[in-house]
Amino acid sequence: MRLSWWKLLCIVLLSYVLFAGFLMAVPRKAILNETIRNIYFHVPMWQTMMVLCGCSVYHSIRFLRKPDLLSDIKATSYATAGMVFGILGIVTGAIWANYTWGKPWSNDIKQIGSAIALLIYAAYFVLRNSITDIDKRARVGAVYNIFAFVMLLPALWIIPRMMESLHPGGQGNPGADPRDMDTRMRIIFYPAAIPGFILLGLWISSLVIRVRKIEDKNLLHA
């Protein structure tokens, strides 16, 4: 079995993240303690989800420009994989929050944002299933995908900066708070954890796309 270079890179990076992430030293912070290691796993889930959803929207736009069922298959496959990473992000976040904030869910603005994102993609699949005509389904789905993604961006990138949040960085700088990490953690987080999980997401999507291509062989070559 021969793997292309980026799949090998993904395996190498994620093995490094797993070993170094669990074994290397981390700074001792009050409340966080050892749970700070979760940053290698929880935060990359969101970056991966955004990349995958971005790919999904890109293929939806391509479908509207040039109707081709292959673009539609790609758009839905990326959205499926993105949803998986979103669910993992919520679960890893809830476990972390249980130990640091005292309860898994506290209606933090970013938790709400992530829940909204999942609901939007769930609605996207419900909408698609309610239309039987294949071309119409692809077109209407693409329109909703683009519209919802554009509406989602302010919810994830602007509003959290305006409201108080339990997440570190809070007002003005949401996302991973670089101040909590030291150099030992940064050399795992930035070069390995984020690209590693993004590559994994792309890999999973490529497998979903291949399965869907086989399933819909008749439609694609008709």
Binding site: I109, I112, G113, I116, A117, L119, I120, A123, V126, L127, S130, Y144, F147, A148, M151, L152, P154, A155, I159
Partner: peptide
């Protein structure tokens, strides 16, 4: 369907 699609999209604006 309108409710299913609309509520998640409108939540941020409604919160604001």
């Amino acid at each position: 369907l309108m409710a299913i699609m609309g509520f998640p999209v409108i939540i941020p604006q409604l919160l604001l």
